[in-house]
């Protein structure tokens, strides 16, 4: 078995604990939404489980507790979920999050490379996979076993630059690169399947570009875990993760305005109620 794949074997996943964590993250993001005028809630809720499984299960740690593998948030506007997880891990502090988007804070609506835990400055869509390809190649040159995990939105797969990276990563046989597509079928404006039917099918496109690709439920951590564990290797892998934009709060699910809007007091309370009664 390929060494990089062998190092992927990990403790099995505690699905109930993951659900509890994700509810907590969504609650924390709702709380933060009450201190600023706007933040990308629905994009963060869409990739909550993806980000959770990476930080809390798939990514390996060094003996000092720091992460050995790399998490690169290509869909920069989804960074709120990354911030709250980094807060829980003690990489960012509570005061960092309290100062989110404020004049003396260091956290803005997009991740900034200077910040602890942030692998690249993103926010302009379609840059992440190129940088992740460079990072994965660098690890190869260094003969390291570090894995580069990259989370992209489906919208980013409308950018030509993402497909340039797809081709190059396959050319370089970067089996240390694993990308997760947060496939919620929404951009900022409309459903992709309505406006851009030629966007589909996704798995065969990625395969024809030389990637190993598989479609999974992006809110089902067990399914994502299994998919990564079943990886054949020898080339980069893409998980096309079926998700719901705004997942977890009924009135936000698949409703475009929640791409970039903070709930008012009533909506906030309603949201908290829904999270409180969500099945574990």
């Amino acid at each position: 078995m390929d060494a990089t794949i062998a190092t992927l074997r990990r403790n099995s996943l505690d699905v109930a604990a993951a659900r509890r964590r994700c509810l907590g993250y969504r609650r924390r993001i709702l709380d933060i939404s009450q201190q600023v005028g706007a933040l990308h809630i629905a994009p963060a809720f869409s990739c909550t489980e993806i980000t959770d499984i990476l930080y809390n299960n798939l990514m390996r740690r060094e003996t000092d507790g720091g992460y050995r593998d790399v998490f690169l948030m290509s869909k920069g506007h989804g960074c709120m979920i990354q911030y709250v997880i980094l807060e829980e891990q003690g990489v960012l502090s509570r005061s960092d999050l309290d100062a989110y988007c404020k004049p003396n804070g260091r956290l803005g609506a997009h991740p900034d490379y200077e910040t602890p835990g942030i692998a690249a400055s993103t926010g302009s869509l379609g840059h992440g996979l190129g940088m992740a390809t460079g990072q994965a190649y660098a690890e190869k040159l260094k003969n390291s076993d570090v894995l580069i995990y990259c989370v992209l939105s489906d919208g980013e797969f409308q950018e030509g630059s993402t497909w340039e990276a797809m081709m190059m990563a396959a050319n370089l046989k970067l089996d240390n690169l694993i990308a997760f597509m947060d496939f919620n079928d929404f951009g900022g404006l409309e459903r992709m399947s309505d406006g851009h039917p030629a966007f589909y099918p996704l798995v065969p496109k990625a395969e024809s570009f030389g990637w190993e690709a598989v479609e999974v439920d992006g809110h089902d951590e067990a399914a994502m875990h299994e998919a990564v564990m079943a990886r054949r290797g020898g080339r980069p892998m893409l998980l096309v993760c079926r998700t719901v934009k705004g997942k977890g709060i009924s009135f936000m699910e698949n409703v475009p305005i929640w791409h970039y809007r903070s709930p008012n007091k009533e909506e906030y309370i309603q949201g908290l109620k829904e999270l409180a009664s969500a099945p574990l």
């Binding site: 919208g155 409308q158 030509g160 851009h196």
Partner: peptide, 28 residues
């Protein structure tokens, strides 16, 4: 892939063929 402000949305409804959304694809 940018939500058109106010009247551009009206323009889009009245003249759907003269409004094109390329998606997140600025080069095209």
């Amino acid at each position: 892939d940018i939500s058109p402000a106010g009247s551009i949305a009206k323009f889009r409804n009245e003249f759907p063929r003269r409004f094109v959304n390329t998606g997140v694809s600025e080069q095209i």
